[in-house]
Each structure stands twice: as structure tokens, then as C-alpha cells.
Design a protein around this nucleic acid. Structure first.
Lengths: 159, 159
DNA sequence: TATTGTTATACTCTATAACTATA
DNA sequence: TATAGTTATAGAGTATAACAATA
């Protein structure tokens, strides 16, 4: 077995680990969401609403990258479960402004704290040097990945 | 701003980066799957079938972690699109053996090669030292995460 | 009696297209 | 004419429960 093939195998193991890590974190977060009565998609909307403030569904659709029709369903569900309300837009009678109920605002803040807690749980015990090396690796991977995606898009556009 | 709070912020940024990295990789893979006519769930079944060889639906259900009913739908779809066939089980007349068509086997092998290619694209340019540090970070994170999940499970079991 | 896979039913997320009310 | 959000329709993934055929 050559040195190159060994590195290859390590690279595949690394990709596998990265994917598994992501899967486990997602499952963990999803589990936490379920405990407060949110699904991942609804939580994404709640998250955006926390950062945007009261917004039209159109704005929310663009923020979370789904169709306007889809947002109707997510907002319907969040209204039914008491997280948000639709209010009339002050100047545009076609539009509705989505904003938090008290309960929704409380849960949104809790999601924020939960995220902070998770980051702390994952990284707090890591020595500074190891942590910086990991972040540096993330940076490099992200840059490389964006490069790959841009290349792929270019190729597709040529067709 | 204290040193501690700065580290906190970096930790959150790191978690955000990890999640975004995972999201981008998943989107990229999903895009590739779409090009060969597979959805993520169906591809997971194809992937398991590649590693298990011809299997009953029950075995597949446990391998991919979904209900037997769900596997029925996935196999139906993969039969309709020409990736797999159901064959009678040689000794158990209740069960069906799912196995690849020629086309399915070819695509499954291609998925494997695509994964290898992606790992190469992502990591090949990384110096050995940086790569090892990154893998070490993944190891530590994975261990920490499994610890956290185990703790959470224990707490839930107490209720 | 237990197991394999099905039918029946339901919920979530997603999309496009056609339509209504309003700009 | 364009935009905001809806109804209508469709497809994918997921689940539980009841039931068939077979072990």
C-alpha cells in the first residue's frame, strides 16, 4: 500500500467523519426542537424572524430559501401552535406582518441560548491551539468547497 | 470585552461554520444525486444495498433506520426507476430479496467514486500537518458529542 | 405465536400553477 | 402590470396501526 493510497483512505475517513458529525449535531438539535414543539423547518423560520423582526411572508420566503406557498404552510402551523401571529401590514393591505407571540419570542430566545450552550459544550474543553487549528481547517474547507461549487455551476451554465 | 467572551464568540462562529459546511456538502451531494435520478433517501438505501448485498426489506429498514413501511415506498420507487428488483427469497416465502439491476449497480459504484472524488477535492491540497490537526479536531468533537448525547439520553431515561 | 411486508391513514416539507386582492 | 398571499394539486419522506401470508 503506497503512501498516497493511505492518505486517500484517511481523506475518505475524514469526509465520513465530517458527515457523521453533522448528522449527529442535526439530530441533537432536531431532538431539542421537538421538545419545545418545533420542527426543523418551522425553527428555521422562527430563527429568521428573531433576526429580522416582524416580516412579511415574502421576506421570510427569501430569507429561508423556500417558495412563498411553503411559507404560508409554515406560518399556518406556527400560528396554530401559538408561536407567531399574522398582523395587518400598516401600509400594504395585501401583505401580512408575521411576528412573535410572547411564547414564540420566549422559545426563540431559548433556541439562541441552546445554540450558545451547544457551542460551549463542544468546544470549551479544547485547548486554544487545537481550537484554532480546527477553525483554520474549517476555513480552508469552506473556501475549497465554495470554489468547487462555483466551478460546478460554471460547467452547468455552459450547457 | 473579556478574553472569555471573545472565545465564546469564536466557538459560536465555529459551530456556525461546521453547520454551514455540512449544509453545503449535503446540498452538493444532493445535487449530484439528482443528476443520476436519486433522492437522498433512495440513495441511502442504494448505498446500504451496495455494502450489504441483496437484502430483505427488513434488513434494509434496520440498516437505514426507518420503518419497514417506509422501505416499501423507497423500494417501490427504486423499482419504478430501474435501480433495483425484488426477487423471491430462496427459503422464506414471506420475504423478498432486493438486489441491483445492472443500471443500479453501475450508479452505486459511481456514487462510491463520487465520494472518493469529493474527499480528494476537499482535502488533497491540504498540508499533512493541517490535515492531521483537522482530523484530530473531528475526533475530539465526535467523542465530545457522543458524550453529550449519552448524557442527554440518561437524563431522559430518568423520567 | 412471531415475522415479513402490505394496505390504510396521516403529518411534514417541498414545488408549480392559477387566482384574488391590492399596489 | 406587478406583487402578496392564497387555493389547488402533486410528490417525497416519515410514522403508526391493522392485516395478510408465511414461519
Amino acid at each position: 500500500m503506497s503512501v498516497e493510497s493511505s492518505r486517500r483512505q484517511k481523506q475518505q475517513a475524514a469526509l465520513g467523519q465530517l458527515l457523521q458529525l453533522a448528522m449527529l449535531i442535526n439530530e441533537d438539535m432536531e431532538h431539542g426542537l421537538g421538545r419545545v414543539g418545533l420542527t426543523p423547518s418551522r425553527a428555521t423560520l422562527v430563527w429568521e424572524l428573531l433576526h429580522l423582526g416582524p416580516s412579511t411572508q415574502r421576506v421570510l420566503a427569501e430569507a429561508i430559501g423556500v417558495s412563498p406557498r411553503n411559507v404560508t404552510g409554515l406560518v399556518d402551523a406556527l400560528v396554530d401552535t401559538g408561536f407567531v401571529v399574522r398582523e395587518p401590514h400598516p401600509t400594504d393591505r395585501r401583505a401580512a406582518l408575521v411576528s412573535f407571540t410572547e411564547h414564540g419570542a420566549r422559545i426563540a430566545e431559548q433556541l439562541k441560548r441552546d445554540g450558545e450552550q451547544l457551542a460551549d459544550d463542544l468546544f470549551a474543553d479544547m485547548p486554544d491551539g487545537q481550537f484554532s487549528a480546527l477553525v483554520k481547517g474549517f476555513d480552508v474547507l469552506m473556501a475549497r468547497l465554495c470554489e468547487l461549487i462555483a466551478q460546478a455551476k460554471e460547467k452547468e451554465a455552459q450547457r
